[in-house]
């Protein structure tokens, strides 16, 4: 079980304050989406939680300062799926997913049967088991996204931060990934996803953090956060929010004149 607490967190990149005054406590067993327009600071906030960028304020992972936790230790607690599909060498899918076991390997040891089992589980869950002998750089964008998602799952950490895990996925696989994130949370993991699809976020997430210009402008249950007035102010769109069904659906009608 891992919890993350953010107290007055700020990140300045170059001279620009990209994240400002962020306060939130993220609990195990929950699926939280970070949503907001391009350039709002979503990814930077996610990176700050992993101590990948220098931040002011306090970022506590299980009560300890994230920057002071040894890298390998933090890596076993929080799995991270970065944005984009960076992949520098033509590894096979199985070898690539196996990179997720790096935090668990003792120095000079080889991959164990338990690691192999974790790699296979991750490939099965992300629906890439059949691709395991293919070269990852030769896959389609969507297949590659699923392989990289499997890589993050293979860490089997009690927390997962996924930055745009739905990018390049078809609608079917988008739902698969959201179901997986939901299942991870249901099994007690702390799951945070940076998302752009507000309807999927509203359908699957317990909580939304709506971010604009580096600050949290709304934090709460999807139905409470996603109001037409707020969407207009933050995204500059006119949207219809229907709350009558099992989950809120958001239909974008067009650009508003902000």
């Amino acid at each position: 079980m891992v919890s993350i607490t953010l107290e007055d967190v700020g990140v300045t990149l170059g001279r620009r304050a990209v994240v400002r005054d962020v306060c939130a406590t993220l609990e195990p067993g929950s699926l939280t989406a970070i949503v907001g327009p391009n350039g709002a600071g979503k990814s930077t906030l996610a990176r700050a939680m992993l101590a990948l960028v220098p931040a002011t304020g306090r970022i506590l992972v299980d009560g300890a300062d994230a920057a002071a936790i040894p890298r390998a230790d933090l890596a076993r607690r929080i799995a991270y799926l970065p944005q984009g599909q960076l992949l520098h060498w033509p590894l096979t899918v199985e070898r690539l997913v196996g990179l997720g076991r790096l935090p668990h390997l003792a120095p000079m040891s080889r991959i164990s049967a338990a690691d192999t089992a974790a790699i296979e589980r991750a490939m099965m869950r992300a629906d890439v088991f059949d691709l395991r002998d293919r070269i990852a750089t030769e896959l389609s964008g969507g297949e590659r996204a699923r392989v990289l998602f499997a890589r993050a799952l293979a860490v089997e950490a009690p927390a997962l931060i996924a930055d745009e895990p739905l990018a390049s996925l078809d609608p079917g696989h988008q739902i698969d990934v959201m179901e997986l994130l939901r299942a991870e949370a249901a099994s007690g993991a702390l799951v945070i996803a940076v998302l752009h699809d507000l309807t999927l976020a509203a359908r699957y997430c317990d909580r939304l953090l709506l971010i604009d210009e580096g600050q949290i402008v709304a934090d709460g249950a999807p139905a409470a956060v996603l109001t037409p007035a707020r969407l207009r102010r933050v995204y500059g769109i006119d949207a219809r929010v229907e709350t009558g069904g099992a989950w809120p659906t958001i239909t974008t009608l067009g650009r508003s004149d902000r």
Partner: peptide, 20 residues
């Protein structure tokens, strides 16, 4: 070796996999 393997996924992912 391990840090170089992790760098296959870029610097952020490598650090998040425990590479110093």
């Amino acid at each position: 070796g391990r840090a170089l393997d992790a760098l296959t996924l870029g610097e952020d992912a490598a650090q998040a996999l425990g590479a110093d």
